[in-house]
Computed example of a mutant assay.
Amino acid sequence: MNPVTLLKAKAGDALLGGLALISPLSIVSSFAGEEANTSGWQLVWSDEFEVDGLPDPEKWGYDVGGHGWGNKELQYYTESRAKNARVQDGLLIIEAHQEPFQGSDYTSARLVTRDTANWTYGRFEIRARIPDGLGTWPAIWMLPVDWNLGSGNWPDVGEIDIMEHVGYDVGTIHASAHSKAYQWQIGTQKTGTIELDDATSAFHTYVLEWTEDVIRAYVDDTLYFEYENEHSGWEAWPYQRDYYLILNVAFGGAWGSAKGLDPDCLPKAMEVDYVRVYQQAEI
C-alpha cells in the first residue's frame, strides 16, 4: 500500500467517524456580537474559482472511495468527475447525486489540499452556500499531514472542523476541535454552534483563526467558538503542525442520517465562492 493509499485508509477506516458526531454538550456560543480582527494577516494562498471546468489540480486533489469513511456514509467519492466537482460561473460546486456507482447508490466529491498546500496556523476564509436536504452532510475541515501522534489513528492525530451542517437540523452550524483528550466518542469534544436562518439560501464566510495559543471559529464577523491551548501536551492540543483543507458533501452517515434520509432531495450541492488562507505577517 503506497503512502497516499495508506493515508486514505486511515482517513476513512481508522475513524474519521470523528468528523464529528456532536454530543448534547454542544453549545450555542456566548460570543455573539464579537467581531473578527483581521489586522496582521497576509494572504498566502487562495482559489477564487475563476476558470470553468474541473477544480485546479495545482491546488486540489481528491479522496476517493465508497467504504463509508468511518461514519457509515453512503456516497462514493469520485475523482476528476465534473458531475460531482466542478468550477462553474465563478463557483466551486461539490454536488451529491443519487446514482449507482462502484457499488454505491450515491456519488459526491471530497476535495483536499493534502498534496498541494498545508499550513501550521493561519486564518482560513471559505465563503460558501451549503445545501439543505434530509441526509446531506457538508463539511469544511482540516486534518494533519502526518499521522504520527499517539496511536497514529484518529482522534489522537487531531481534527479541526471549520463548518459542519446536517440536513435534519437546517441552519445549525457547528465548529469543533477533536483530540485524544477531547472528542465526540467520549462526549468531551470542544464544540460551538451558531444558528443561521439563511445558511442554505445565502453565502456566508466560514472562518478559522488558528494560532499556537487558540482556535477560533467565526461566521462572517461573529465569533462563536473558541478553544485555548491548555499547554497540557499533545493529547489535548495536537494542533502544532501542518494541516490541510478538506471540502466535501457526504450523504447519510451516522450523523447525517440520524433522523432519516430523503434520496429524492438530490442532487444537492455546496457552492464555494472562494477559499483564502492568511498567515500572520512577520514583524
Results as ranks from 00 to 15, higher is better:
220 D>M: 00
164 E>H: 10
213 D>K: 13
188 T>I: 05
194 I>K: 05
207 V>D: 04
201 S>I: 04
204 H>D: 02
214 V>P: 07
166 V>S: 09
194 I>G: 10
167 G>Y: 07
191 T>C: 10
169 D>K: 15
197 D>V: 13
174 H>T: 13
184 W>S: 15
211 T>D: 14
179 S>L: 06
205 T>M: 06
169 D>G: 04
202 A>K: 14
171 G>H: 01
195 E>H: 11
207 V>K: 03
198 D>S: 15
188 T>D: 08
205 T>A: 01
175 A>E: 05
211 T>W: 03
197 D>L: 14
178 H>S: 05
179 S>W: 00
193 T>A: 12
210 W>F: 03
197 D>I: 14
209 E>I: 00
191 T>F: 10
186 I>W: 10
192 G>S: 06
193 T>N: 11
174 H>I: 14
168 Y>H: 11
174 H>Q: 08
170 V>N: 06
186 I>V: 14
197 D>Q: 14
166 V>T: 06
175 A>V: 00
217 A>M: 13
174 H>L: 14
171 G>N: 02
205 T>G: 02
195 E>M: 08
208 L>N: 01
211 T>A: 08
172 T>K: 12
162 I>G: 06
183 Q>Y: 11
180 K>R: 12
213 D>G: 11
187 G>Y: 14
194 I>Q: 11
180 K>A: 14
198 D>C: 02
219 V>A: 05
200 T>C: 14
189 Q>I: 02
172 T>H: 15
173 I>T: 04
183 Q>F: 13
166 V>F: 05
205 T>H: 05
165 H>N: 09
186 I>Y: 08
217 A>T: 09
197 D>Y: 12
206 Y>A: 00
186 I>C: 08
211 T>C: 04
192 G>L: 01
168 Y>K: 09
178 H>W: 04
181 A>V: 07
174 H>E: 12
204 H>N: 05
207 V>F: 03
178 H>P: 00
199 A>N: 05
165 H>Q: 12
204 H>Y: 04
200 T>N: 11
197 D>G: 03
205 T>L: 14
170 V>M: 05
193 T>F: 09
181 A>G: 11
172 T>W: 13
200 T>H: 05
183 Q>T: 09
212 E>D: 15
165 H>W: 08
183 Q>R: 09
176 S>H: 03
192 G>Y: 00
203 F>T: 03
169 D>C: 03
199 A>L: 14
209 E>Q: 08
197 D>A: 12
200 T>Q: 08
216 R>N: 12
185 Q>E: 12
207 V>G: 04
209 E>C: 03
